[in-house]
Design a binder for these strands. Structure first.
Lengths: 198, 198
DNA sequence: CCTACCGATCGGTAGG
DNA sequence: CCTACCGATCGGTAGG
């Protein structure tokens, strides 16, 4: 019974984060009140504050969860691939899928809502973002070595370029638009491989 | 005398937009109060509302001004160049400079603060953004024809990739960091040309 | 004494 | 342009 109560609590927190992430993504963090979040969950504001101490804390957990998803669905899924070039191709595809995914709205919130997070919490998120880009950077450097690239493009600049190409998608992508998800994967991969490994 | 008053008024509006853009960029639009803006200008809130009817209106004018800057410093500066490839190279360099420029903080605000703008005003800004990307797209298509590219990359996907690479810079660029502005221009140009014109 | 909440309202501050 | 305010709503918290 105490285990069930624990599970219910955890589930509630997860459900709150999912709902809040959806609202934050649609309306923006500041334009979404705690009342909006509570109402969407058929909860009172008081009920919401039973689970989280503050609005900031909710945002922080959404972003942390977004980083968990990225690390799990991209980094961990890619570690097992022994060929570096195939590892990078898969990373691009999976990272793109995470950004495009309808379900993982936490990602969009993480990419956009930097300002509202209090500096100590923001630093913790930024540290994880930096780790991610370093992972990309090392992988790019490895493929450059194997391909014996001429070295006109530094792994660092290439990593930022790749991250920008993919992450910017949240700003304009409409599922009903002319560019389908799989097209984007194919074309972005083609652009990046020809560009970074000359 | 009436001309002078007019000039003073215009100057005041410009100065307000510059100061507001700086604050919006640093703290975010929602976290910046009208009092903050007024105080930074040594004005009262009432004085500020003499020049602009609402906070939204200030944001709209900042974004419009950012589009003016982009059209003037990139599009207009590039129209005179007859060779398409050189025209695209210059566009990349100038667009990057606009994003990196310390002075044009309006650009960062325009790239980031989409949510707070009321839909009718947002549509007007988005229409101008779409014109800009279509300009890029046509130019990329032209260079692909000249270079007789194999056609693995569509001009549309290439334009979005280029825009993403460059615009994302506002999220991480620090002038004191390891990647200097001119390095970015060289390397992003190299990546994009090899990537989009295979 | 625990949990998962509720209706009502707090002190402050927002844009106007 | 300023001082003096407003209706409303904000994030957060009280007792039960």
């Amino acid at each position: 019974m105490s285990a069930m109560t624990r599970d219910t609590l955890v589930d509630s927190r997860q459900e709150i984060l999912r709902t809040a992430a959806r609202l934050f993504q649609q309306r923006g963090y500041d334009a979404t009140s705690m009342n909006d979040v509570a109402a969407a969950l058929k909860l009172s504001k008081g009920g919401l504050y039973h689970h989280f101490q503050s609005k900031d804390e909710i945002l922080f957990h959404i972003m942390s969860h977004a980083m968990d998803i990225t690390e799990e669905k991209v980094i961990n899924a890619v570690r097992g691939i022994s060929d570096p070039e195939e590892r990078l191709r898969t990373l691009i595809r999976l990272h793109l899928h995470v950004v495009l995914s309808e379900r993982d709205r936490e990602i969009t919130v993480m990419l956009h809502e930097n300002h509202p997070l209090p500096p100590p919490l923001r630093k913790r998120i930024n540290a994880r973002k930096k780790e991610y880009i370093h992972f990309m950077e090392r992988l790019i450097a490895e493929v450059q070595r194997i391909r014996q690239s001429k070295g006109v493009v530094s792994p660092r600049a290439a990593a930022f370029a790749l991250l920008g190409m993919i992450n910017w998608i949240y700003q304009w992508y409409k599922p009903e638009g002319t560019l389908a998800g799989e097209d984007l994967v194919q074309q972005y991969t083609a652009i990046f491989f020809a560009g970074a490994f000359q």
